[in-house]
């Protein structure tokens, strides 16, 4: 039993089976990568975990509790946060507000408290803002707090998205291609950041990633999907020599090399 268990999950779209009978156990405080060629069903799997898709079969168990039938907002509140492959920030809100939205489940005020300006509410807000600033500092964005999200450069947007997810105080964080479109230096920094998430904050990371260098460098476990099925699982070293994985990638002449370039 891990912290997140995906048990025999199948998801179909009409006749197409996007995820077929996938079982993955994610160990607490690990970095677990899910790789596979385009269209292998990785993002669909994320959507099944977060409740945006209902799995047709199988179960998703989080901390021993089945969650696959819960609505997505409830799953988020239980402690599963995510980022998106194509960044989805609240473009017209400031960086600070983006993070504060992430903190939503941990705050309590609603309609009446702010209207009356109760002290409890004012203190809560002050604390939240302070915390949000700390989170922004954690991803090195504290001087961008009052910039609109849409005006931040690409790399900072990626980091802000992580900060927003962290604001949810998740136990498990799902990162969908966090280094896509980054230059080598930014990629390096993001890898550091991901490690810090695990080591300093104790968060379990599930990572979808195309950059094999990243995957092989930071993963504790790697699961490989192909055509919606899990074809291999193991440590990075094991995956690199797995013949089925090599076939899945090279058999289709994928450009991505499997061996990490030093």
């Amino acid at each position: 039993m891990g912290i997140l268990d995906i048990v025999h999950v199948t998801k179909r779209f009409g006749g197409l089976v996007a995820v077929r009978d996938v079982t993955i156990h994610v160990e607490p405080q690990s970095i677990h990568s899910i790789i596979g060629p385009n269209g292998a069903g990785k993002t669909t799997l994320f959507n099944c975990i977060t409740g945006f898709y209902r799995a047709d079969e199988g179960e998703v168990i989080f901390n021993g509790e089945p969650i696959h039938f819960l609505p997505p907002d409830e799953i988020a509140r239980m402690g599963i946060a995510r980022t998106y492959q194509n960044i989805r920030l609240f473009a017209n809100l400031t960086a600070m507000e983006n993070v504060l939205v992430g903190m939503h489940p941990h705050l309590t005020s609603w309609l009446i408290e702010p209207i009356l300006g109760l002290r409890r509410y004012r203190e809560e807000e002050a604390r939240a803002r302070e915390e949000a600033l700390q989170l922004l500092a954690f991803v090195d964005l504290e001087d961008r707090a009052y910039f609109l999200a849409k005006n931040l450069p690409y790399g900072e947007q990626r980091r802000l998205e992580i900060a927003r997810a962290l604001a949810l105080k998740p136990k498990v964080l799902l990162l969908d291609e966090p280094t896509a479109g980054m230059n080598p230096r930014e990629t390096e920094e993001t890898m550091d950041l991901i490690r810090r998430l695990r080591d300093e904050l104790g968060i379990t990371i599930v990572l979808i990633e195309h950059d094999m260098k990243v995957v092989m460098n930071i993963s504790d476990v790697v699961s490989v999907l192909d055509y919606g099925e899990k074809i291999a699982e193991g440590t990075p070293a094991e995956i690199q020599i797995n013949p089925r994985v090599i076939e899945a990638y090279l058999g289709r002449g994928a450009a991505t090399g499997l061996t990490p370039a030093a």
Partner: peptide
């Protein structure tokens, strides 16, 4: 039936 059970429960 599993789907129906889920639907009913929620």
């Amino acid at each position: 039936t599993a789907r129906w059970r889920v639907r009913l429960r929620h």
